[in-house]
Design a protein around this nucleic acid. Structure first.
Length: 695
RNA sequence: GCCGCCGUAGCUCAGUGGUAGAGCACACCCUUGGUAAGGGUGAGGUCAUGGGUUCAAGUCCCAUCGGCGGCUCCA
């Protein structure tokens, strides 16, 4: 007879098989009432699952006490909500066939095949939500019905639901010996869905559901298979939590770098220029330039040298590196010389033939560079090297072009032309570890300066069962160990992922978490044995013999485009002084102070500060509002009193009041220091200590 | 690339087959105001582009271009 062990270690003995609900009721009526499901020996289960043997049991309630049980609770609620939404949609559109409806971290979706003559549209959302609301109010129980495999398959065949039949067949292949349905209500009388569960006890326990968006998907994710309609939604046990979540979505939208970028005029993407090609406006260019300068300063400290390379190079270069034609589909097509084209035309070469001959290397041309490394390699190779020269560290803010699929393009974070903070290190095996550590310290320094302390590293290792990797096993072992050792020096946890290595070497990736918890994959450090081989690189060792160097590719911030995009979202457009396109705005109270305002403006400009003078014909309130909306860090308001005393009245971003008057020279000095230290609001904090961090 | 939705003034967006709209921004005038919107006047449009249906198209249909959300992809 079962002995139930609860999370606190206490046990309860029963002389008969019990359900989690009964155990909960045995503990207390309140718990039973709050219960939504259970974890039996670590397996998330229905509340009325029969427990016949000794088991560990945790009751999942609608008021979870820790993250793990909150995750489980939301899983139950959302999985159940997916069913209710599917039922609602089938009520509205009877011909809809169900495919697959799992919960997600932030909600759930349901894939369905919708009749062509009655597509779903977002106009249907209100209707669907109203229908969901009805089903929730009816508070029908989720009833599990199990049946033997053969009988279940017959039932699905009889219903003609090919997708569910496929799901069932997959479940059987995976080892299921029964099939289960969940009925919302009474079997035979109410709506049902093939599902392994578990679910909340009844539809009334779902709380609040919101239908969010429509998308399309493919059956099994295969683009040659059936196209399905995916309906996204989210659910919470209460309306309050749902509203809070929707509020968070709003906030994320307000933080979107595309929205802020447009509002603050940081960058522009122009139809006439091309998709995924960024035009950096004057303001955005300031942010990028300041960032590049900062990174470049650190690189000099680390012994890097800077190079410049052209935007195009001969196809042969990329044939040697292997980028062409191997990654051809993600490159802009080659540029072929006019004479070659004319000659081919005379020969009557067809387009198809041209494509083939290009691919096969029979026609010369140029490629818009998809990678900087081949050119850096040729720089390395332009001179003989001694082991005494190594490591050679060639860095470049190198612009590359890749043909990303049009559906993938997204603001600054996924583009077709971008500038990597790229560098290639040519070193000996023994130097790999130190070079990796150098890369990590650069990343740490820059993230810390930007207040992005929350980042993690991911070490990508080879898949031991695969033979796709180049280089010998001993080298791989050493390189992987170097990556792990380097990651360990950070003193924070890092993950190791097998099979995530590039085919030419292991790597370390950097993933930052922004202020609202989203993760962004930025840069990467990769060890490469392949390219030195392909280009026949060598250095002369202490033994006076030629040796093959190892290459490290590193772009710790990925691309300037993506990095600035992430920064825009991180700061919500409110950049620290040193990055701000406009650092301080001078605001005369009225025309009477225009002369002094010009003086203030000139003094700030002379100190190299980016400043403007707003002497437009508006009241001071209106001009302050405009400057605040533009997220300018400091305002210098000047009136007759300031002109008299040679002061400025300081107002700082994030503080809804005048911070008081400061002598002009002090103001210039304070701003200059804050800028040079790349600090955040050190001047503001010196004026109002209690406002520290309020910005 | 695929599916769905969308494209109206610089921006945000209304617009029911029948005369093209609002707010903000912009220009000019009045106002000279000490810390988050003072008032007035005005200019601004090939309703993404090209076809079609119709007496009549911003509105309906088709194609193209572009955006968004997903799917797939990401050296």
């Amino acid at each position: 007879m079962p002995r139930i062990t609860l999370p606190d270690g206490s046990t309860r003995d029963f002389d008969h098989a019990v359900t989690p609900y009964e155990v909960a009721a045995d503990i207390g009526a309140g718990l039973a009432k709050a219960a939504l499901g259970a974890k039996i020996d670590g397996v998330l289960s229905d509340l009325n699952t029969t427990i016949e043997h000794d088991a560990q049991l945790a009751i999942i309630t609608d008021k979870p006490r820790d993250d793990a049980s909150r995750h489980d609770m939301l899983y139950l609620v959302r999985h159940s909500a997916a069913h209710v939404m599917a039922e609602a949609i089938q009520r509205i559109i009877p011909g809809v066939q169900l495919v697959y409806g799992p919960p997600l971290d932030t909600g759930f979706y349901y894939d369905m095949a919708v009749p062509e003559d009655r597509p779903l549209s977002s106009n249907d959302f209100e209707l669907i939500e109203a229908e969901i609301e009805k089903i929730i109010l009816e508070n029908r129980p989720f009833t599990r019905v199990e049946c033997p495999v053969a009988q279940g398959l017959d039932k699905l065949r009889a219903e003609g639901s090919k997708y569910k039949l496929d799901n069932a067949e997959r479940a059987i292949v995976a080892g299921s010996d029964t099939l289960s349905w969940y009925v919302t209500g009474t079997p035979g009388a109410n709506w049902e869905d093939l599902c392994r569960g578990p679910h909340v006890p009844s539809t009334g326990r779902i709380g609040a559901v919101k239908v969010l968006s429509l998308a399309s998907s493919y059956w099994h994710g295969d683009e040659n298979s059936d196209r399905l309609t995916r309906v996204y939604g989210t659910a919470f046990p209460s309306k309050k939590e749902l509203d809070e979540h929707l509020e968070l979505l709003e906030q994320a939208r307000a933080r979107d770098h595309r929205v802020i970028g447009k509002k603050l005029g940081l960058f522009h993407i122009d139809d006439m220029v091309g998709q995924g090609l960024i035009l950096w406006t004057p303001k955005g260019s300031v942010v990028r330039t300041e960032l590049q300068n900062f990174i470049a300063e650190e690189l000099v400290k680390q012994g890097y040298t800077q190079v410049y390379t052209p935007h195009i190079g001969k196809l042969d270069l990329y044939r040697t590196s292997g980028h062409f034609p191997y990654y051809q589909e993600s490159q802009y097509p080659p540029i072929v010389e006019r004479e070659s084209i004319e000659q081919l035309a005379q020969e009557g070469c067809s387009c198809a033939e041209l494509a083939n001959r290009l691919r096969d290397g029979e026609i010369d041309g140029y490629l818009l560079k998809p990678m900087n490394c081949p050119m850096h390699i040729r720089i390395f190779n332009s001179q003989p090297h001694s082991y005494r020269d190594l490591p050679v560290r060639l860095s470049e803010f190198g612009t590359v072009y890749r043909w990303e699929q049009s559906g993938e393009l997204n603001g600054l974070t996924r583009v077709r032309g971008f500038t990597q903070d790229d560098a290639h290190l040519f070193c000996t095996e023994d130097q790999i570890a130190d070079e990796m550590i150098g890369c990590l310290s650069l990343v740490t320094k820059i993230f810390r300066t930007l207040g992005m302390e929350d980042f993690r590293v991911r070490v990508g290792l080879r898949d031991p069962d695969s033979d796709k990797y180049v280089g010998d096993a001993a080298n791989w072992d050493k390189a992987e160990q170097a990556c792990k050792d380097a990651a360990a020096t950070l003193g924070k946890p890092f993950s190791m992922e097998q099979g995530e290595a590039a085919f030419y070497g292991p790597k370390i990736d950097f993933v930052v978490k922004d202020v609202i918890g989203r993760e962004w994959q930025l840069g990467t450090v990769q060890v490469d044995y392949n390219l030195p081989e392909r280009f026949g690189l060598s250095y002369i060792g202490a033994d006076n013999a030629a040796h093959r160097p190892v290459m490290i590719h590193r772009a710790p911030f990925g691309s300037m485009e993506r990095f600035v995009g992430v920064l825009i979202e991180h700061f919500e457009g409110a950049f620290p002084l040193w990055l701000s396109p406009e650092q301080v705005r001078v605001l005369p109270i009225s025309e009477k102070s225009a002369g002094y305002a010009k003086e203030v403006h000139a003094a700030l400009a002379a100190a190299g500060l980016r400043t403007t003078l707003d002497d437009s014909n508006d009241r001071i309130q209106a001009r302050i509002r405009v400057a605040a909306e533009e997220k300018i860090p400091y305002m210098a308001v000047v009136g007759p009193r300031d002109a008299e005393a040679r002061t400025v009245s300081v107002r700082a971003r994030g503080v809804q009041k005048d911070l008081g008057a400061l002598p002009l020279v002090e103001f210039v000095k304070g701003l200059s220091m804050e800028r040079d230290d790349r600090g955040e609001f050190t001047l503001k904090e010196s004026m109002v200590p209690e406002a520290a961090g309020a910005g």
